[in-house]
């Protein structure tokens, strides 16, 4: 299990780096696909099979197809001035490393994990064994349509608003407002 974790984590990390460091936009998009597939593997390791499937279908499928379509439509080509922003890249890299070290220090120092490697507080009822006995998707669906019904409905409203907004924005007109 830890071998799979290591492999998927390295691939996800390299994919994330590729998104930022690629000169061409299409390479960034492909790196993001790599990152998302590796993340789906990590979700499987975390006993979140439904999230892993949704990650592949929605992210690596729908969202990235939209991205690649827009890249092909606009064809921005190479971002030729990436070299002239080396100072910004350096500063961004230093900031990213510092943030990661900070979070890693807090994580390993026991802010999130207790003295014996246990999380603080009582564990909930959804242990992996119990969830798998009932069915992972069934458990998630039960929760989604009972306890978390309001966020679910608000999300559907948000999707409707986004669809209407996208149609409004991409309407043909004389001048962009």
């Amino acid at each position: 299990m830890s071998v799979v974790f290591g492999l998927a984590a390295v691939i996800a990390f390299l994919g994330a780096l590729g998104v930022v460091l690629s000169q061409r936009t299409i390479y960034s998009a492909m790196s993001l696909v790599l990152n998302m597939v590796a993340l789906a593997v990590l979700f499987l390791l975390l006993d979140a099979q439904f999230i892993a499937a949704v990650q592949i279908i929605v992210y690596a499928g729908a969202v990235m197809v939209l991205f690649v379509f827009i890249i092909a439509l606009l064809s921005p080509g190479a971002e030729e001035r990436l070299r002239s922003v080396e100072l910004r890249l350096l500063l961004g890299g230093v900031g990213a490393v510092a943030f990661t070290l900070l979070i890693g220090r807090l994580t390993l120092n026991g802010i999130t994990v207790g003295a014996h490697g246990r999380l603080h507080g009582a564990l909930g009822p959804f242990s992996p064994v119990a969830v798998n006995a009932h069915g992972q998707v069934q458990t998630l669906g039960d929760q989604l349509f009972t306890t978390y019904l309001l966020p679910f409905e608000v999300t559907s409203l948000l999707l409707l608003v986004a669809a209407v907004g996208a149609v409004y924005l991409s309407r043909r007109r004389r001048q962009l407002v």
């Binding site: 299990m1 830890s2 984590a9 930022v20 990590l42 890693g104 994580t107 994990v113 999380l119």
Partner: peptide, 19 residues
Amino acid sequence: LFPGFLILSAAMFAIGAAG
């Protein structure tokens, strides 16, 4: 593996923010 997942998450967030 718990800290590993969190550190990977932090690293990805930092890379995204820097980008």
